[in-house]
Amino acid sequence: MAQDLVKSFGSFQAVKGVTFTVNEGEVFGLIGPNGAGKTTTMRMLSTLLQVTSGSATIFGKDLITETDEVRKIISYLPEEAGAYKNLTGRKYLEFIARFFCQGEEVYDMVDHGISLSNLSDRIDDKVDTYSKGMTRRLLVSRALMFKPRLAILDELTSGLDVISAQHVRKTVRDTAANDTTIIVSSHNMLEVELICDRLALIADGRIIELGTPSDLKEKFDAANIEEVFVRAVSA
């Protein structure tokens, strides 16, 4: 799916040629140290950054030439994101839903989003009264409610408590089971082991390891992914 993606900022290459394929319906994890290029890669895939060189196709749509088509089938959750503060959670979901459908469908989609968010009665409060974790839950449900074909989720559970993180992980797995392919990045190695079918380890703008969690553990003779991470990066 992604072919030799390169992103330069001026003379600095943040992503130095990344190639990987994500299978349909899979949860694909990107892990790596800070500044490795995970976010940059995801921003390229979600049409936010112009690709310096290389190519990618998403469900047969070319990322560079069919940008508008790609935007219809993907959703992107930025690592740091917010919602419009003067809207209520519900109104925010409605605003987003209107980009994807019309009429009654909007409300069905919003209802689905609300159930994903698990915000229950707080959904009608203004977003600026939300805690960080509540906003994150709203945004995760925003990214998943319209059943995109590909969801790109950067630092999925950042700022979430254990219970909420668990809920969000379950939501992600459920969504993946319902025909949504997911690319997720995380610094929580337990989490990636729990939800990812396959992992790519990025360091310094390159993929240095790629495989299923169990393959990787075997390869590095490690008890868990955290050890894999440490050994692979310091190798």
């Binding site: 049409t47 936010l48 219809k72 992107y76 994101a81 917010g82 987003i96």
Partner: peptide
């Protein structure tokens, strides 16, 4: 408020 990135990935 970090809402721009989201807006820019919308199909619009």
């Amino acid at each position: 408020n970090k809402t721009l990135e989201t807006l820019l990935t919308m199909p619009v």
